[in-house]
Each structure stands twice: as structure tokens, then as C-alpha cells.
């Protein structure tokens, strides 16, 4: 049994220690907001926070989490009132939506470490792939969230 703290709740999961956190979240715990896009840390669809840092869950073995606190898109703010969620709605960022949980988690982590990011900070921190091409609005929404 592996113990995990996810979105403030303790869970025990009976899984292989090598299992990537992404699949524990999705298949074992049913937290399907975190997405699969590549499995090799290239696209960011699987971004979650571990102790406040954005990480790519597809290459993170579940056993490496230990006592750290995991935050997924489901736990970002239950009622959608996180500044990132508000800004995402105000700018109508998503198109197909698939990359957006990862984008929002990456943005939320950036805003925690740099509350007023410059364009260069955003370029550096947001390396997630959006095939629908929402990048311009992602940038605008991050700036709006920083002002909120």
C-alpha cells in the first residue's frame, strides 16, 4: 500500500511503486482532470503540483511522492474561484480543452513563484503544448490573473 495526500485528502493505493502518478490519479483514483498527451514529459497535459511545484505526472513514479502534497486540477479551487480559473473564463481560453488542466496548473505554479510574471517569465515557464493554439489567450489570462 502506498499512502498519498491528494487535494488535502489521504489515500492508500495498492499499486506498483513504479506506476506513474498520472495513471494512479486517473485509473486508480478516478481523478480524470489530469490528462495524458505524450508520456515522455514533453507536452504538459499531465501537470500537477507536488508541494506547490509543477511537475509532469506521466514520468513521476508514484513511490517518489512520499509525504509530499499533491494538488490536481480538481483541487485547485472547488468552486472555480482561483484567479487562474477566473481569468481563464474571462478570456475564454479553452478550445478543445484537453491541454487546459495542465496549462492552468502550470500557470498557477508560476503565479505562486512569481506573482507578477513578465512575458519572458511566461515564455520560460509555460512549455505545455496546445494543439488548438490557445497560447495568446493563455498569456493574456496569466497577466490578468496576476492583477487579480
Amino acid at each position: 500500500m502506498i499512502r498519498l495526500n491528494i487535494n488535502g485528502e489521504d489515500h492508500s493505493v495498492d499499486v506498483d511503486p513504479d506506476m506513474p502518478l498520472l495513471w494512479v490519479l486517473r485509473d486508480t483514483l478516478g481523478l480524470t482532470g489530469t490528462k495524458f498527451g505524450c508520456g515522455i514529459a514533453q507536452c504538459g497535459a499531465c501537470t500537477v503540483h507536488v508541494d506547490g511545484q509543477a511537475i509532469r505526472a506521466c514520468i513521476t513514479p508514484v513511490s517518489s511522492i512520499g509525504d509530499s502534497k499533491v494538488l490536481t486540477i480538481e483541487g485547485l479551487q472547488l468552486h472555480g474561484d482561483h484567479p487562474v480559473q477566473q481569468a481563464w473564463m474571462a478570456h475564454d481560453v479553452p478550445q478543445c480543452g484537453y491541454c487546459q488542466p495542465g496549462m492552468m496548473m502550470a500557470a498557477a505554479a508560476l503565479l505562486t513563484s512569481k506573482p507578477h510574471p513578465t512575458d519572458a517569465d511566461i515564455d520560460q515557464a509555460i512549455t505545455n503544448i496546445c494543439r488548438c493554439g490557445t497560447y495568446a489567450r493563455v498569456r493574456q489570462a496569466i497577466h490578468s490573473a496576476a492583477k487579480a
Binding site: G37, C38, G39, I40, Q42, C43, I122, D123, Q124, I126, T127, N128, I129, C130, R131, G133, Y135, A136, V138, R139
Partner: peptide, 17 residues
Amino acid sequence: GNFDDYEMLRLDAMPKV
């Protein structure tokens, strides 16, 4: 096979539209 050998435009290269 994957995004490591098939490059995608990312946010840092997004032009002003």
C-alpha cells in the same frame, strides 16, 4: 513517434495575431 521527434510550436514562439 512523439513530441520529441515531431516538434510543436509552443507559447514562446506564438506571434502577435
